[in-house]
Design a protein around this nucleic acid. Structure first.
Lengths: 162, 162
DNA sequence: ATAATCTTGACCAAAATAGTCGAGAAAGCT
DNA sequence: AGCTTTCTCGACTATTTTGGTCAAGATTAT
């Protein structure tokens, strides 16, 4: 897998927090429902994410999770890197890039390519902030509405034609 | 993992065949030794690769595997795509990109990013042929020799200084 | 107090991945 | 023909990673 489910969930959870940034703590149960993430699993994930410094939590009655940074100051790359780290040493890396696991001491014929791959991957990751994702989402919603309107008109016309 | 061990092995095996292209069939045992791949596992891998049309094999006494195309006509992307296919449907893909597994019908906030990631990944894969890898390898060897020469001289000088 | 909510660590299950084995079939050599 | 070498094929096993659950406890607002 290029990306695990867990990282995907982490990103979606943070995205959801970004969406509601500034409106107080958000409950795990809410995030789980809206983002379609198994709740007990999300508990684990968010708890881990606290150590990243991106999110924090408040316990008790009106408790929940919230972002510690502005959405534009959290890049996807930051989250991925953090999630990789927690599993002890870059898990999502490629065997030949890290000298330890490469039988040729990181000098195999493929390693230059893996480095390129790694770079271009994180070029995208680091170039995408939560803010960017939010804006994309807004645009998408706008487009969908326009399409719906267009479709409705289409429906009406068809109705008349019959 | 970004790339599995098996795919890595497949690439290294094909690379080795490319290195010896035009010199008749190469034995599995040779490839396994030179590329540090478990032999019985490599048997399985090369056998699968026959279906890709990149390699073919000859049995018996002076048998072995050989490339069906010129090294410059085999890109890393071709190999990766083939290996992905054999596992039934793009395994190395991302959940949200394929509509089936995305709870939001492939319309989640992250999907545009995953598409970008996918593109830039295969941009590297498809832009790297076996020939390219061979040339890189040659250059690497040349550089290492130069370094060794330089190091030897350095040694001599140190010897005199003491 | 008590109800809501996060916290923690242990635990389990399923899937994917990595790797092995044995018996057989073809090809060349003598 | 008989022997050796080498691939072939399918079944099998082991290991690791991932995904997910649970229960008991701590904290806070009301």
């Amino acid at each position: 897998m290029l990306i695990t489910q867990k990282k995907q969930y982490a990103l979606r959870a943070i995205f959801e927090l970004a969406k509601r940034h500034g409106r107080g703590p958000i409950k795990i149960s809410t995030i789980a429902r809206v983002q379609a993430i198994p709740m007990r699993f999300l508990e684990v994930i968010l708890n881990e994410l606290k150590k990243s410094g991106f999110v924090s939590a408040k316990r008790g009655y009106q408790g929940g999770y919230y972002l510690l940074r502005r959405p534009r100051d959290i890049a996807v790359g930051d989250v991925i890197r953090f999630m990789d780290k927690t599993g002890e040493g870059e898990q999502d890396c490629i065997a030949c890039v890290s000298k330890d696991s490469c039988p040729f001491d990181g000098q195999c014929a493929l390693s230059p390519m893996w480095e390129k791959v790694w770079e271009s991957l994180f070029c995208v990751y680091d170039g995408t902030t939560m803010q960017d994702l939010l804006e994309l989402e807004l645009e998408r919603i706008k487009n969908r509405k326009q399409q719906e309107n267009a479709a409705e008109k289409g429906c009406d016309r068809r109705g008349l034609e019959i």
